[in-house]
Amino acid sequence: MSAITEEAVDSASIAAASTKRKSLWLVALRNPNVIFGGVILLTMLMIAILAPFLGTVDPQRIDPAARNKKPGTEITYRLDDGQTAKRVAIMGTDSLGRDVYSRVLYGARVSLAVGVAVSVISVAIGMVIGLISGYIRWADGIIMRIMDGLMAIPGILLAIALVSIWRAGLITVVFAIVVPDVPRVVRLVRSIVLTVREEPYVEGAISVGTPTWILMFRHILPNTVAPLIVQGTFLAAAAILTEAALSFLGIGIPPEIPSWGNIMAEGRTLFRVFPHNILYPGIFLALTVLAINIMGDGLRDTLDPKMSKKV
């Protein structure tokens, strides 16, 4: 029933908007969802960076004497100088005797790196292709056919296919997740370009003789920033989940590298007896992704209200 009130509220909202327009980013930073998600995410980031100083041991260190210990077990270590030391494995150990707490904390590095890398690379590539597609008509047909084709392959399968071609590794995994994401960014950018192109202010700019590249950078590109930040956030969340799934299936990052998916993959066989190997990394994983998603919702509501009406 918005149309009913439009007349009445319009004048009200104009007055309100006039003081706020420029501080849109500040509004976003004041959104409770953004704050909530951001705080958790920052905490995760600190954990990832400070992992070596948070009472961890080498996450790849195998200790046959300390295999499959439940959380809270006290473990005796033999140090390099031959002395022994004791410490409590608060999250237990895995079947190779590696300390799960250390692996989980270090695992944050892999997940966050994958999330950031995938979203930044996908958005960058997608934006370039999307601009070309939205602005150069003959290229549009070809590009969109390829994008439609790529989108016809379910994302995780496409990633699996690419991983199988290139062999496992962090960079492989990142690119395997980027490829299915790119068409989504392309579509978003292209649709914005096509819509904004029709705006009278763009036509006005054309009629005062503005060259195409200025038109692009001054009038069209700024419209893509907010939606791309929002989309990039959600892509990061999905990428972290995909990496975890691939590693969990044993076809992602090499198993000795501590990633949350790998820790869970390792814990699968003895899950009935030692569920902690799946539980702890699962909690960290879910919490991180949740934080990003909540932050994404908040960013979308504030930066891109048109889109928030849609989804």
Binding site: A244, A245, M264, G282, A286
Partner: peptide, 8 residues
């Protein structure tokens, strides 16, 4: 639901 992975 979007955030918790299926295997967890």
């Amino acid at each position: 639901g979007f955030s918790v992975p299926g295997f967890v």
